[in-house]
Every structure is written in C-alpha cells, then in structure tokens.
Design a protein around this nucleic acid. Structure first.
Length: 998
DNA sequence: CCCCAACCGTA
DNA sequence: GTACGGTTGGGGG
C-alpha cells in the first residue's frame, strides 16, 4: 500500500444486523433459508466494488476488506465483567445468515478478517491507523457511532444504506463534538445496549456541553468541583471510576496484532464464475444477471455452489457471536432476556435446537403476526409528487411493496382508477417482527356536489393521474421489485387498462388458495382475521350500502385513506405470514407454476372478451318468449286456474294437492319436489301438465339466463363480452367463470345449442375450440394404473363400450346403446366417488341393482377400488388429498362423526385428485400457450376456458396451423412434470361460431 | 334490501 | 355420486 491508495473497510457484523432489520424478510424459495441480510450485503459489495465513485464516497477503492467479530468474549470482559451482558440471542431468521455472509465475502474474492479476543471495531481501528500512517485514505463502511472516534481528515465513514458520507462535520453535527472527543463523550454517556455504564444522568447534550467547557474527560474529572449544578457535580464525582472504566471499554485498540497485512487487501478482479456460483446458490437472480453481464460470464453454464448452511443447532460459536457486537439497534428495542450468553457457544444453545427449519420459521412468523397490533392511525395520504417519489424510492430500496388499487367498479373492465395504496416494510426491531407503513395516493376523488350528470369536480390536493402513473409505472413493471397484492388479477387488469403491465408480483389470495383450499374462502377480510387477528374496515362502511351507496371516487379522501392504506398494509402482513408457509409446506411449485403465471394469462383473456351477436340472441329470445307463452297458456288451462309456473311451491300445490298426483319426494324443507326428475317420471305415466312444465322451464331458463342476460354484458366500448375467471374459488383447482358465467353455456339440447351460435369470431377470423377427450378418465387410468383402461386409451377404443364389455361380457360390436349408457354412467360415477344411491338415481334403477353393478365393476377393475380406498385413507390421515402435480384439497370434515357428512367428504376426496389433476393439466397448457403460439408465429388469441376446453380466436388463414400447434401443446401439457401412463387426446375444430367449432 | 331454497345450465 | 354460477320465488327484516 502506498500514499494515495484508498482502503475500504466494511464492518461486516454491523452491516448484517442493519441489513437484516432494514430489508423485508426474503427467503430462498427452494428451502426457505432466510437470506435478506445476505442479499443486502451482496448488493452493497457489488455496488461498492463497481460504482463507489458514483456514490457519496466518490472514490474507487484500491484495497478492500470485510471485518467481522470473532466472539463475544474479548479483552473488554476482563476489564468489566458486565460488558455486553444481557444480550438477547439474535433472531432465528438471522442465525443462518452469519455464516452465509462470510461465504459471500469469500465469493467476492475479498479478505474476510477476524481475530479471537477482539471486536471488529478494534481491527478496523488498527487497519485504519496503519493505512493513514502510510498516507492512504480510508473509508469505513459503517454508521456505528463506536467507530466515529476514528474519523480524521483522511479517515471517513460511509453509511451504505443511506448513501451518506460521515466525515468530521457530520460527527460534529450529530454529537456536538469533533471525532477525537468521541471517546470521552461515550465514556460519559455510556451505552445501555453494551452495558457500558457511563455516568448516570449524563446524555449526549450534557456531555457535549461539559467537553466544550473543560476540553476533555481528565480535565473535567480533575476540576469536577467547579461544576455549578449541584446534582451533576455530585454524580460525576461519585461515578469517576465508572467513567474511567467506560473510557477503557469504548476506546478502540489501534495496535491489535493483525494476521493479514494491508498489502493482502489489494483489490483483485472479480472471479465471475465463483461469484455467480454463490449467487445462484442463494437464488439472487437479479444480481446474478448483473454480475454475468459485467464479468462477461455465461451464467447458464455455472452450477450453483455448494454453500454450507448452518440452520441453527450446528452453528459454530464465532459465526453466531459475530452478530452480538453489532446488535445494538436490535437490542435497543428488544426486551432483554434474563440469561446472558457467557460463552462463545451460548447463543447457539439459547436458540431452540430445531428452531430454524422452514416449518419452524413459518410458524415463528405466523406467531409474530398473530394479533400483532396494527396502528391504523398512522396511514397517510400522499398528495404531492415529491412524497410519492420518496415512497417509490423506498420500495426500490426494500424490494417489496404492498399494492392495491381503488376504483369505481368491481368489474375491472369498467373500473376507472381512483387511487392506489402502497405498503412498505422493513424487518422490524424485534425478532421475526416487521414494521410496515402504508399510504394512499388519491387521484380521482371528486367533491360530492356534482352536476345533474352526477360528476363532481376533482378535489384539490391530488396528484394528476397521468403524473402519478408515470411515476409508479417503472416500479410496477420492474420484475426486481416484488409487488404484493390480494387478488392481483383485478389490479393487474385495471393497471393494464391504464397502460401499466405489472411484472414481478405475488398474490396473497393465491398463496392462501394453494395452502388452504377447502378451508374456507380466501378473501382479504377472512385472511386478516385468521392470520392477523385484525378486522379491517368493511368496504360498505366506506361507500355505504344499497341505494345510498356511492362509488369510491365520491368517498372523502381521509376516509378512503383509512380504508385503502389498511388494505395494502394487511396484504403485506399476510404475505409475511403466507410466503414462508409455501416453502415449509412444500407447495411453492404449485403456486409458482400453476397459480401465479395464470394471473396475467387470465387477465388478458378477460380483456380480450368474445364477440356475441346481439341480433341472434334477440331473435332467439323472441322465439323462446313465444314458445313459453304458448306453453304457459296450455299449462293454465290444464291446471284449471291461473298460477305462476315458475313457483315450485304453487306448482306443487297444483300437482300434488289439487290434482292429487302421486308425489314423488319432498325437499329438505318439506316442500313437494318438482324437480325435472319428478316431472319426467309423472310425464312418463302419461300426465300432460308435468311434461309441459318441463318444456316451459327449459325455454324460460334459456331466455332468462342466456338470451336476455347476455346482451347486458356486452361492453359498451369493446362490444364484446368479458367474463371474469376466479382462480381461487374451487376446492379442486378448477377455475370458475362469472359475470357472465361462460362455462355453462348450453350444449346438450338442440334448443340450447342455438345460444352458442351467437358466440362468433370477429370478421376475418374463426373460433377454434380444442377440448380434451375423456381427460378425467384418462387421469383416473393414470393414477389408479388400470391395465384395461390404459390399453383402451392407447388403442383408441370407446372407453364406455370397453367398460360395458368387461362388466357384462357383451362384445363391443353391435352393443345395445342401453348397455353402453349404463357403463358410461358407472364410469362417471366412479369419478364422482360412486355410491349405490347415486348410481340408482342416475339410472333410475333399484338401489340393489346399482349395488350389484358397482360390485361387478370392482371385480373387473380391482385397481379402482384400491385407489378409492387408499385415497380415503390418505384423506383421513392427512386431512387433504393431492393432484398429480401436488395441489392439495383439504377435507377436514372427512373425520366427522356425522355419517352422511363423512361420506360426502369421502366422495369429494376421491373426486378431487381426478378433477384437480385435469384442472392442473389445462392450467399448464394455458400457461405455455402464449409462448407456444408466438414461437410458431401464430396470432391466435386464447379467449375462453371451459374446464377441458380452450377457445381461441384466430385469423382464418392460420386456423389449420393453430389447431395443430394448440393440440400438440395441450396433449403434452403434463410433460415433463408427469410422464402420463395414458396418452392425452385433444379434438379441435375451427368455425365461425362456437356451436360449429365445438 | 338481503338472504336462502329450489332449480338448472356446464364439465 | 363431483365441481361450479345465475335466476327466480319467497320470506325475513
């Protein structure tokens, strides 16, 4: 080292504690290893090594070292036995990171320096003075006041997290004394977290004043009699010895015997592959990419390094204890525990022996947030651009932000943005805790007055919406910053319609769904009460209810802030609880592969919508009205009195009271059942009225639910119908569709199918419908591994005919349709968790006969019975069942003592893996579809999903090729996760409307 | 105005 | 026998 060189000394132990508390909990996704402090550390090192000149440091280092504490036992304990006593053990999430930080330092090719019996501060002091003596400059990367005594004209400090240089003026500004008087200052004030006594009652202000007057501590003590304030004079004289011991404790040793000379700190070029190996092992994708670019390394070829991890119980003393010296900020706000670590191993012993496994970390996190009070009075409204910029900068800083939009409508295709809220977290001052603050950015709130058209004037004190969107857009589109929302599909679509494509996000609703499907709904209010013990403000409380309700833009801003900021706050808290559970419960890949990617896919499908021909529906509606009116008239005359045929109650009275027909069955409320089944039976006996009621019901159903309702869903601007898909509504993993439900458009009857002719391709295009053939039976053949079924599917044989042939010994050739029908019903029954009761109902046969069928079926297909029994046993033992991709469906009531409830849950548990696996397969196809189409240079757009069917809109000229590409993608959707034992088959067709394409 | 039961459309 | 959502009637407040 020579004059003019510049030495950077990083206070590694101090940094890890500050980073841990400042950075929200970030866990390695593969196993939940906490890595937030390591992440902050690596980012800081990378920045200092490459861009130090662009920071407040303003110089480039020539020499560089990272210094750590070695153990909590140092020479200071000899001086004063209570030194650093009463230190709580470090938080569980931090313990594994001590070792990782050292590994990181080595990966960065930097010297990693520590020495037994000394604190990092002593090593830093020694090196700083050595370098200074040579004429080099020194920058200490730390903001610890204990190091400020080292600051001179040539020695500076740098707060990396605030990007702030600390030199002589900053020390004076902060403490009122120059650096060389910091030792005396600390000797007087002491340090409660380190148990440095100081002089009782003397704080920084008094100390500075006394040092100003007397010059230094020795002079002060010598002339203590001159102090005018009686009380102060007496305590200083009485505590003279304490002050002198304190001075010894806080004075850093500048002559520590060091093992690594300054020369060895000379900076060497980065070893790209080595560093990337470590970063990959930590799963820091963004930094990996940056390092690869900068060092010209091909990251894809580098394997993640095998980094040793001390989860806790096996951690060696020095690694754990290094944290202690830097734990000042943490300890200050933490209630000290009774037992102090007394040996270098004690922290490891104090920590629970198995307290650092993913499941325990998740449990600790949940416990930390359960009932943790939420300060809802701290929410603020952001009303100016500068403040918004600050919040956005903090989101970049922490890398995670809670996000929520407020709009004028529950329908994201109609919604206008009224404001958005942000929640920012750091990792809190207490173990496993977190501090969260949230704000609302009002953009489109109006005053209540308004003109006759209803529109009020924009309220003052709101950032113009365009400006706010321009500011927030880069943040929302930056995949490196995690946006956390509840039901992100809604916010994603709203923001997309405002020109922002959110990238890099988590969705707490979907997390809850993969973790707890079947254990209640996944709405924010429910989750908040369940996990946080907090009941958020109800939406209705803010907007009012019923006729008196207003849209959110009419809500006063203070009221809106209380509501909206709380939503972002709660969402981020839920993330803290739920995210670690994904790893702990082994369900992360379901979330990442089958849930999260569908958010954008479905949002885009919803945005595209589908063309519906108003004229066709209107014509059909007229026809249906005519038909229904004619039927109604004949119904009235047959009944002999006017009544409402739509009222099951009135109908029951007519049929079973007045007309005295034999009543089939009663509903659970004691009413006569007038179900289609009952009416069909009566009709079969020759009664005319029930027959006409059945027909009337069909026509009115088609009219009210479809031909009349659908036109109301045509969007005024797009002229298309935009359904909404729910990702987290079913227990099995299926989607659901609503407003309108496009998953129950009629198809079974000729009358009903006419509705489908109204769903049309836009001019120049065709609709392509591609549906899986028998996907659930194929899944059953796969999971239960049934040889006959597998063979039949491989050979392309009619599966129901094969079943009938096996069961009844009837050859497939020339099989009566009734025989096949019965086998088909049994096959469906199997999928639904068959019961003799249900099968009997379905086939209108006796219970006993149905029971015989089932018995026979199981004789022929014993593997199916085994599957059903083992599935039930699994569900009873675990409370859930799994799809072939690991999705879970919970059935807590399967242990119910109520026999019918228990049986119901058993049937559902048998069905769920089959229905759910099929749902997972089509989800996989959907996630891949856009990429597959793009690769094939096709412009087809996926519009709808109906459980086993996908509908696309495609230019006429591309239809044929699209069918081939889509079919291939769907048939291969299980691969490579699952190598299906049965081929998947897809039928696809193109036509101008949905009826012909299906 | 809200909720539930009954009924029925889909896979 | 599984999984959904929408419409209607009807009763409650």
């Amino acid at each position: 080292m020579k004059k003019g060189d510049h030495l950077f000394l990083v206070d590694g132990s101090g940094f890890i504690f500050r980073a841990f508390h400042a950075i929200p909990p970030l866990n390695r996704k593969s196993d939940g290893l906490p890595v937030n402090a390591v992440s902050g550390f690596c980012n800081m090192l990378w920045k200092l090594l490459n861009d130090a000149r662009d920071t407040s440091v303003g110089v480039t280092p020539t020499h560089f070292a990272v210094i750590f504490d070695y153990s909590s036992k140092t020479f200071r304990n000899e001086l004063y036995d209570k030194y650093k006593a009463h230190r709580p053990p470090p938080p569980a999430d931090l313990i594994p990171q001590f070792g990782l930080i050292r590994e990181a330092t080595k990966a960065f090719n930097l010297p990693c320096i520590e020495k037994e019996g000394y604190e990092a501060d002593d090593l830093i002091a020694t090196y700083a003075r050595q370098a200074e003596a040579i004429g080099a400059d020194v920058t200490i990367i730390s903001s610890d006041k204990d190091l400020m005594q080292l600051v001179t004209a040539n020695v500076h400090m740098y707060d990396a997290m605030k990007d702030k240089q600390i030199s002589i003026p900053e020390v004076i500004e902060k403490w009122g004394v120059p650096p060389e008087k910091m030792i005396d200052m600390q000797a007087m004030t002491g340090d409660s977290t380190d148990n440095v006594p100081g002089i009782p009652g003397i704080g920084p202000k008094t100390a500075a004043q006394l040092l100003e007057e007397f010059g230094d501590l020795d002079t002060l003590l010598a002339r203590a009699e001159e102090i005018k304030q009686v009380k102060r004079r007496e305590t200083i004289i009485a505590n003279r010895e304490l002050a002198l011991i304190s001075r010894q404790l806080v004075t850093l040793k500048t002559d520590t015997p060091v093992d690594v000379p300054l020369e060895e700190m000379e900076l060497h070029p980065q070893d790209g592959p080595k560093l990337i190996g470590f970063l990959k092992a930590m799963e820091f994708t963004t930094l990996t990419r940056r390092v690869a670019e900068k060092t010209g390394t091909e990251a894809g070829e580098i394997e993640p390094a095998n980094v040793p991890v001390q989860w806790g119980e096996a951690a060696h003393g020095p690694d754990l204890d290094t944290g202690e010296a830097g734990a000042k900020d943490a300890a200050a706000a933490t209630k000290p525990i009774a037992a102090a670590p007394t040996s270098s191993k004690s922290a490891a012993i104090d920590a629970p022996a198995d307290g650092f496994k993913p499941a325990d970390l998740a449990a600790a996190r949940a416990a930390a947030f359960a009932g943790k009070p939420i300060d809802t009075t701290a929410y603020v409204a952001i009303r100016d651009i500068e403040t918004l910029k600050q919040w956005i900068a903090e989101a970049y800083e922490t890398g995670i932000v809670g996000f929520d939009t407020e709009t004028t409508s529950l329908d994201p295709m109609q919604a206008e943005l009224v404001g958005f809220s942000l929640a920012i977290a750091d990792n809190g001052k207490s173990p496993d805790g977190a501090n969260i603050r949230a704000a609302y950015v009002p953009l489109g709130h109006k005053d209540g007055v308004g003109d006759l058209l209803g529109g009020g004037g924009l309220l003052a004190g709101q950032i113009p919406i365009r400006a706010a969107l321009d500011l927030i857009k880069p943040l929302l589109e930056d995949p490196a910053v995690l946006k956390v929302a509840q039901n992100m599909k809604y916010d994603w679509l709203v923001m997309k319609r405002h020109g922002v494509v959110i990238d890099g996000f988590d969705d707490t609703m979907l997390m809850s769904y993969v973790l707890d499907a079947g254990k209640g709904n996944h709405g924010m209010d429910t989750l908040s009460e369940r996990w946080l013990g907090h009941k958020p403000i109800a939406y209705k409380e803010v907007t009012g209810t019923g006729k008196a309700s207003v849209t959110f833009d009419m809500v006063p801003i203070d009221k809106a802030t209380a509501y909206a900021a709380e939503d972002a706050d709660v969402t981020l808290r839920l993330w803290m609880v739920l995210k670690p559970r994904l790893v702990a419960e082994g369900i992360m890949s379901v979330y990442e592969r089958l849930e999260r990617p569908l958010v954008a896919v479905l949002a885009l499908m919803e945005e595209r919508g589908i063309s519906v021909d108003r004229q066709i529906l209107s014509r059909l509606s007229g026809e249906l009205a005519q038909g229904a009116a004619a039927l109604e008239e004949s119904i009235q005359s047959l009944a002999g009195e006017p009544f409402n045929p739509g009222s099951p109650k009135q109908l029951g009275d007519i049929l079973f009271g007045k007309m005295g027909l034999p009543g089939g069955s009663k509903t659970k409320t004691g009413q006569w059942s007038t179900s289609a089944q009952v009416l069909e039976d009566l009709a079969a006996e020759g009664h005319e009225l029930p027959r006409r009621i059945v027909d009337w019901r069909q026509l009115t159903k088609l009219k009210s639910t479809y031909t009349d309702a659908l036109p109301g869903y045509i969007h005024p601007e797009t002229k298309r119908v935009h359904t909404s898909y729910a990702l987290a509504a079913t227990t099995t993993g299926r989607l659901s569709s609503s407003e309108p439900n496009l998953q129950n458009i009629p198809v079974r009857t000729a009358e009903g199918r006419k509705i489908r002719t109204a769903f049309i391709a836009s001019p120049g295009n065709l609709l392509v419908s591609a549906d899986y053939s028998q996907i659930e039976l194929r899944v059953l053949a796969h999971v239960a591994d049934i040889p006959q079924l597998r063979r039949a599917f491989e050979d392309g044989i009619d599966i129901h005919a094969m079943t009938a042939s096996e069961m009844f010994g009837v050859p497939v050739e020339g099989m009566p349709s009734e025989v096949r029908r019965r086998a088909k019903a049994i096959n469906f029954g199997i999928i639904y968790g068959i019961s003799a009761f249900g099968l009997a109902n379905q086939l209108s046969i006796a219970r006993g006969e149905a029971g015989d069928y089932i018995k026979k079926y199981f004789e022929r297909f014993p593997g199916i019975r085994d599957y059903m029994e083992s599935t039930k046993a699994f569900a009873r033992e675990h409370g859930y069942v799994e799809t072939i991709f690991g999705r879970r469906a919970w059935y807590p009531d399967i242990r119910s003592s109520n026999p019918s409830l228990k049986a119901f849950n058993e049937r559902a548990a048998i069905n769920a893996p089959i229905q759910g696996s099929a749902a997972d397969i089509i989800r996989r196809a959907m996630v891949r579809m856009d990429g597959v189409l793009e690769e094939a240079k096709l412009s087809a757009r996926m519009l709808l999903q109906v459980h086993d069917e996908l509908i696309f809109e495609v230019p006429e000229a591309e239809a044929e090729k699209t069918i081939a590409v889509v079919t291939k993608a769907m048939e291969g959707a299980a691969f490579p996760a699952i190598d299906m034992k049965v081929p998947l088959k897809v039928d696809a067709r193109a036509a101008h409307n949905w009826d012909e394409a299906h």
